[in-house]
Amino acid sequence: MEVRTIKVFTTVDNINLHTQVVDMSMTYGQQFGPTYLDGADVTKIKPHNSHEGKTFYVLPNDDTLRVEAFEYYHTTDPSFLGRYMSALNHTKKWKYPQVNGLTSIKWADNNCYLATALLTLQQIELKFNPPALQDAYYRARAGEAANFCALILAYCNKTVGELGDVRETMSYLFQHANLDSCKRVLNVVCKTCGQQQTTLKGVEAVMYMGTLSYEQFKKGVQIPCTCGKQATKYLVQQESPFVMMSAPPAQYELKHGTFTCASEYTGNYQCGHYKHITSKETLYCIDGALLTKSSEYKGPITDVFYKENSYTTTIK
């Protein structure tokens, strides 16, 4: 009895394709271990004539594949690729409408935090270190965002349907971005203890939790000093293409032309909904596939993004 075979390709990165001759009487799992086709788990399936010449994702289970996976995804987590594939199996079914010149995501599976993050990423200057993220990001900007969303979920250790947080998501993504040249110098002034300067680099240099107003941050924000008295913390120097200011959701007025974009969060910790506000020729609110415009805006804002380049204080 002759062994019926077909020729397929296996890959971990969709760049390096490895030619395989597979036995049609055995499952993919018996031949390769966990195997995925377009995100779908085909591990328990036997090869079919229609699979001839198709590319299958496999887990990096030998040295060659491990090197290829690390170079593309910059992670050695053995569960990463499987999590990416199972997320992709959902995100490829989502709709990605162009809204006001940006790629958004039609609401499904509690994905409003991903839509808000995706919209924000198209408006701030950011370059990702893992080629996987950078490639998928370019495709997302062009309207094909399924891979990018699935990668975000995998890097953030999230599953489809789980509630997510924009600030946490951005923080994970910033860790995989090139923020080497970003720098922030802060000064804390206390009447009792004097003053202390701190220099922050990388992710810490672009994120701040405690106030939404970048102007206020430049002037000074009140913080408790270690001595128990009130101290003032203010920005001395900022070198970065953008800054992200966050605070627990509270009524906040966004003035046209003073910011790049913002995240609105309605609801409580267990259950809520994100919308995205962007400042173009007027203010726009993007909620999944829905767009509304207004000249002014007041609502429960939790993150505001500002364009920056270089700032030095005039406070002496």
Results as ranks from 00 to 15, higher is better:
Val236Ala: 10
Thr192Gly: 12
Ala40His: 12
Val3Ala: 14
Met24Asn: 15
Thr10Ile: 09
Lys219Ile: 11
Leu290Ser: 15
Lys93Asp: 11
Thr260Cys: 11
Ala247Tyr: 00
Asp165Arg: 00
Gln270Cys: 11
Met207Thr: 14
Arg139Lys: 14
Glu253Leu: 08
Thr27Pro: 12
Gln238Val: 02
Glu2Cys: 11
Gln230Glu: 11
Val206Thr: 00
Ala150Glu: 00
Pro224Gly: 08
Tyr284Met: 14
Leu126Gln: 02
Asn309Gln: 15
Ala87Arg: 05
Cys182Asp: 00
Lys54Cys: 15
Lys298Tyr: 15
Pro34Met: 08
Val206Cys: 09
Phe32Ala: 07
Thr198Cys: 14
Lys280Gly: 13
Asp63Asn: 09
Pro60Ser: 07
Thr278Lys: 00
Thr116Cys: 13
Cys190Thr: 00
Val12Thr: 06
Val21Gly: 11
Lys92Asn: 09
Glu215Pro: 01
Glu52Gln: 13
Val160Met: 05
Pro300Ile: 15
Ser79Glu: 14
Lys7Thr: 14
Thr313Trp: 12
Val22Lys: 07
Thr116Leu: 06
Asp41Gln: 13
Pro249Cys: 04
Glu168His: 13
Ala177Thr: 10
Ser246Met: 00
Gly194Tyr: 02
Val99Phe: 14
Tyr72His: 13
Thr302Asn: 02
Lys298His: 15
Gly101Met: 03
Cys149Ile: 10
Thr5Gly: 11
Lys191Met: 11
Asp23Gly: 11
Gln222Arg: 10
Gly257Pro: 00
Cys193Lys: 07
Ala108Phe: 05
Leu173Trp: 02
Gly267Asp: 14
His276Trp: 08
Leu118Asp: 01
Phe9Thr: 10
Gln122Ile: 05
Ile223Glu: 10
Tyr214Leu: 13
Asn111Ser: 01
Leu59Glu: 15
Gly53Thr: 10
Asn111Leu: 06
Tyr297Lys: 01
Asp41Glu: 10
Gln30Arg: 09
Ser104Tyr: 00
Val67Tyr: 12
Leu173Ile: 13
Tyr137Thr: 03
Gly272Ile: 00
Leu235Pro: 02
Leu163His: 09
Thr75Ile: 10
Met170Gln: 02
Thr116Pro: 05
Glu162Cys: 01
Gly220Ile: 01
Cys182Leu: 04
Gly202Arg: 04
Thr19Ala: 13
Thr169Asn: 02
Ala40Pro: 07
Tyr306Val: 00
Val188Trp: 08
Ala262Ser: 01
Thr232Leu: 13
Thr258Gly: 09
Thr292Cys: 09
Lys93Pro: 06
Asn100Gln: 14
Arg184Glu: 03
Thr211Ala: 05
Glu204Tyr: 10
Ala145Gly: 10
Pro131Gly: 06
Cys112Leu: 02
Tyr208Leu: 06
Gly288Ile: 00
Val221Ile: 13
Thr192Glu: 13
Ala177Ile: 00
Cys227Ile: 02
Gln134Val: 09
Thr258Cys: 08
Val42Pro: 04
Thr120Trp: 00
Tyr311Ala: 09
Lys255Arg: 12
Lys280Gln: 14
Tyr269Arg: 15
Gln31Glu: 08
Thr116Ala: 11
Gln175Ala: 10
Asp165Asn: 14
Ala146Gln: 10
Pro300Leu: 07
Ala108Ile: 06
Asp63Tyr: 07
Pro300Lys: 08
Cys190Phe: 03
Ala231Lys: 03
Thr226His: 14
Pro131Arg: 06
Ile223Ser: 12
Trp107Ser: 06
Lys191Val: 15
Thr11Trp: 06
Gln270Val: 09
Met85Trp: 09
Asp41Ala: 14
Gly288Phe: 00
Tyr297His: 07
Met209Gln: 14
Lys93Thr: 13
Gly33Glu: 04
Asp287Arg: 00
Pro34Ser: 11
Pro131Trp: 08
Ser181Met: 15
Val67Thr: 13
Asp303Cys: 03
Asn61Cys: 15
Ile15Phe: 13
Ala250Glu: 12
Leu126Asp: 04
Gly39Arg: 05
Tyr138Phe: 15
Glu308Gly: 07
Ala145Ile: 02
Cys193Arg: 03
Cys271Phe: 13
Ser25Tyr: 09
Lys280Ser: 12
Pro300Val: 14
Asn129Ile: 08
Gln251Asn: 14
Ala69Met: 15
Tyr137Ser: 07
Leu65Asp: 07
Gln196Asn: 12
Lys307Thr: 15
Ile124Arg: 03
Asp38Leu: 09
Val22Asp: 07
Thr120Met: 10
